[in-house]
Amino acid sequence: MKWLRWFVVALYLVVATAPLVWMGLSSLKERADTISPHAKFLPTAEAPSDPTSPSFEATFEAYRELSVVHAGAQQSFWGHLGSSVLIGLVSTLASVALGTCCAYGFSRFRLPGAKDWLFFVLSTRFLPPLAVVVPVLIMYRTLDLQGTHVGLIVLYTVFNLSLAVWLMKGFLDEIPRAFEEAALVDGYTRGQAFVRVVLPEARTGMAVTAVFCLISSWNEYGFAMTLNSSGAVTVPAYFAGLQGNIEGMPWPQIAAGALVFVAPIVLFTVLVRENLLRGMTFGTIKQ
């Protein structure tokens, strides 16, 4: 049965990585090769003489051209990546910070109606986000937040907050109260005990929560497309906006950009994967 297990895993590996591999190959092609009617999947140093051959001439041109400003766009890929980084990082920090403070309150104090409040926090996720696109669009137009960094930061923070509160509550519940109480008796105030005792213990949880928030705001497409079609355009919206470009879709650059775009998330996720697993099963493991 061992070979069957390997077979299934190998099969899944192929299915899961095929799009990434194809993207990698496309990023090394000339545009003509990406839209060739003949499948091109063997990178070679020299251009093949036969146009129907499966090999193509590999080039890093597409990566160099990431700094080109395409027709219809206002910035190069790097400019949009900058917007994505700024919006992603700030909204993640804000979600984790607010979520941790809020979860601490739910975790440690007897609040009247705490369960109802927690349910309310969760209920903000019940509607599919796109259902509220139009009201948000009108609101943002009135507030002049369309196309701004602040607009998307606020939006993503709010969307991720409920997840952050629930995740962090799970993590904080696992930290024994006695830790802070010992600090209180030792002469620290509640705030100092939170910063000096609880936060260091909650680091793992905060890292896990940050990954989830970052992934969701990093990849968000619907609102980015609707609210920020110009101005602070994030990478997903930028790629989509290249459609109908008079030069034709710059596929090699899109492939190259997409690879650069997913790299940090993949890297980060691999780095904290053990903690992520713990985060997914939080609440099931009691100390």
Binding site: E181, L184, V185, D186, G187
Partner: peptide
């Protein structure tokens, strides 16, 4: 407050 009492627990 607990801090003000100078007690150890």
């Amino acid at each position: 407050s607990p801090a003000a009492r100078d007690i150890a627990l």
